[in-house]
């Protein structure tokens, strides 16, 4: 049904919004040298997984129920993983967090990568919005049949 499409695309919207949150955190902390773990900020990245719901709960026509058993009903965020990559070493002797040789460990956040990720996230968000708009339009057209 149209509401199922809306729920599925809505989960996509939630996931992409969370991705946006994480990207903004990465960009905001691109220069952060202190965290609770005692090391510089590590870049974070969301891991998406399919969200399977038991479709037997939905009232589907019996002709479709078998083929629709394996359909996923949206996306969910499985985990937010930290990038284990090496930190940037920057020579800056005046920095409060510099070591004895004057090197500061900077976060492994690459601003350019984050920008590209942000474009990708906003495009995915727009795609999900298009799906919702389209299904809404279809529903309206069906209602207009009776008019």
């Amino acid at each position: 049904m149209f509401y199922d499409v809306m729920d599925t695309a809505g989960s996509g919207l939630t996931a992409q919004r969370l991705r946006m949150d994480i990207i903004s955190s990465n960009i905001a902390n691109a220069e952060t040298t202190r965290t609770d773990e005692g090391e510089p900020y590590r870049r974070q990245k969301p891991v998406f997984a399919v969200k399977n719901t038991n479709l037997k709960d939905f009232s589907l026509p019996s002709a479709f129920s078998e083929s629709l058993d394996n359909i996923s009903k949206g996306v969910r965020v499985a985990e937010i993983r930290r990038d284990p990559g090496p930190f940037d070493l920057v020579y800056e002797p005046g920095h409060p967090d510099a070591d004895e040789e004057g090197y500061v460990r900077m976060p492994n956040v690459e601003i350019v990568n984050e920008m590209v990720d942000m474009i990708s996230a906003s495009r995915s968000y727009e795609a999900n919005v298009s799906v919702i708009e389209n299904s809404k339009q279809l529903a309206r057209q069906v209602i207009n049949i009776g008019r």
Binding site: F2, Y3, M6, D7, G10, T14, R17, I132, K136, R140
Partner: peptide
């Protein structure tokens, strides 16, 4: 989540129509 709100309103509107 703004889209949750909008989606709920949209569903209500479609049901009413």
């Amino acid at each position: 989540n703004l889209h949750d709100v909008i989606l709920a309103a949209e569903k209500a509107d479609l049901s009413l129509q």
